[in-house]
Amino acid sequence: MSMSPVLSIAGLTKTYDSGLQALKKIDLEINRGEIFALLGPNGAGKTTLINIVCGIVRPSTGKVTVAGHDILRDFRATRQKIGLVPQELATNMFETVLTEMTYSRGLFGYPASPAHLEKVLRDLSLWEKRNDKIMTLSGGMKRRVMIAKALAHEPEVLFLDEPTAGVDVELRRDMWALVRRLREGGVTVILTTHYIEEAEEMADRIGVITKGELILVEDKATLLKKLGKKQLTLHLQEQLSAVPIELAEWKVQLSPSGYELIYVFDASAERKGISSLLQRMGDLGIVYKDLNTEQSSLEDIFVGLVHENRSGT
């Protein structure tokens, strides 16, 4: 996996005619071959960002390049490299799957390639349905058709805008598997989602966008490590009325019932570790009958970040 940026966004802003400021100065670089997840609440600017890169929305200011080509000046070069699967199932329902794919490939400036279309269709388990009209397919199948269309011109960068919104669990797993296969084939995948599970499952890096601002871009593992909090809960044998002063340095908390001691610690900074806490408790004669630890998920981190950003402004 080479690390040269395949997509580079600098100082990008977008204000719609209505006056709505959808993006406030976005800077972002996407590496070739990575899976990047753009997380954010509804209306955060995820789709606007994607639509600008794909040429559907005009940027107000800023510069975007795809594989070194400017998206405005060299729009033909950049758009040939990009595939887009939009949020909505927008396709010609009266056409057959194969006709639609042939149309898509031609539209993006490539000569017909039945072999490639067959490969994509087989990959998406759509080959048997190739001569069916799209309106006769199930919702999940239609979504696959949207992906097949976006892959018809062999894009280097694939945008998936909310790929699994309203999709059942099985199809979601299929979708994830497909994304991994695409990455193995060298395709860079940028997806937006508000399912944290999805980003956690798939992404190499995660960007969090809210109110048109990219408030964080981080390696997923680093992010989890850096911001992930661990929580140790000790279920006590006997009720305590207050936290003993000897345990103050760990900043442990007592549950209202008095039967649980809660110790929150950063996964990265474990200087005042669990073992020393447990040892001190042993010295004090505090007996516990059970313990469990919890690690915060990306969801907790995300909610925390977005909340922080909201209260900060």
Partner: peptide, 14 residues
């Protein structure tokens, strides 16, 4: 009307 215009807009066609 159907939203399929996105494809033409995102395609390398002038």
């Amino acid at each position: 009307f159907t939203g399929t215009i996105f494809e033409v807009l995102s395609a390398p066609v002038s």
